[in-house]
Design a protein around this nucleic acid. Structure first.
Lengths: 179, 179
DNA sequence: ACCTTAAAGCAAACATGTTGCGTCAAGCGT
DNA sequence: ACGCTTGACGCAACATGTTTGCTTTAAGGT
């Protein structure tokens, strides 16, 4: 049972904070459960019991970091909005830390919802953009089409073809979709 | 130095075989380095020194299993060829073992070439299909377009949106691309 | 046949992951 | 407000996995 505001919640936050701190200090590869536990002021067994293993914990933390913090910028038109969003998305996700978070998010339980959350965040952002365009009376594509035509190709390159990324790629995908 | 045909090669093959056997017998999650080493008749330290850790080893093995064994079926026309290939690809890759291999392949060294190989295999298969179509005089899209329009969306769903897959999806992607 | 050297074996030191059991505190009923 | 119930945590012993220095083996070159 997770009791919000209680000890459980404090421990969870302390552990997540410890992961973020140690990741920043010593790098992604150096993380170990005992180290994280020590920094968070808990015993390793607490972490093992709650998360199972390091992968699940990192997956948890990664998903939090992938959550967008602000709604997508409003530039006044569907194409401009989508292009700006896609460019920023590609930029953030293709950076070394961005890629690490994506990989971590994919690592958790295959049937867990972490990877799904990741996609849902993107879908939400796109939904906002499309909603605004619809209010303006512009013709809008389906969210699914944007995921297939813009998000998926960018993710595919990030994951499977490192090094083949330039900022114009995001714009090209949006243009192809809307044109 | 890797001496083909020498002891190194024998050890590598023994270890890979051990991974495949144990994976089939005891399941993906139960694999450990000492267990694999015992089955392969080598010491754990050999595996650690050659591959670094279990992830790299599994990544290696996974890439091998993802290599297509036969050229894509020839059905006499570009659209039919691509549809058949995409459908089979989706079917294989979205199965539980297929997804496990993809995840393993992605897990290796981020700057290693394992994930890239994975994409290269698909590109090769597509290249064969497009080459045959070109010989027939059909107009053919770029390999890149097929990767972006067909492979990437399928992979995206497999990785990030489990459960949203039906066989017709592959055909729809091909139709949208060629139509 | 003899060197050279990369790779493998071995074993001990080390770190990490696991588990049983006692304790603690959050939420709940009285 | 008080005590009860129950999940989560700490602790410590244990099991398992990982790393490392050194030795031995065998492939390939001379």
């Amino acid at each position: 049972m997770v009791r919000p505001g209680g000890r459980s919640a404090r421990v969870q936050e302390a552990v997540h904070a410890a992961v973020r701190e140690l990741e920043a200090e010593s790098g992604r590869e150096a993380l170990t459960v005992p180290q994280i536990a020590a920094r968070a002021g808990v015993t390793p067994s607490t972490i093992y019991r709650r998360w199972g293993d390091l992968r699940e914990l990192l997956s948890d933390v990664a998903v939090e970091r992938l959550r967008p913090e602000v709604p997508p910028e409003n530039r006044g038109g569907l194409e401009a909005d989508l292009e700006a969003w896609a460019e920023q998305f590609l930029d953030e996700m293709s950076s070394p830390p961005g890629r690490a978070y994506i990989r971590d998010a994919l690592l958790g339980d295959p049937d867990g919802s972490n990877a799904g959350q990741c996609s849902a965040y993107a879908a939400d952002q796109i939904d906002v953009i499309l909603g605004r365009a619809a209010e303006r009376g512009e013709p809008v594509p389906d969210v699914e089409r944007v995921l297939d035509g813009v998000v998926a190709p960018m993710m595919y390159r990030i994951l499977f073809r490192p090094g083949l990324l330039d900022p114009a790629y995001a714009r090209r995908l949006v243009d192809d979709l809307l044109g």
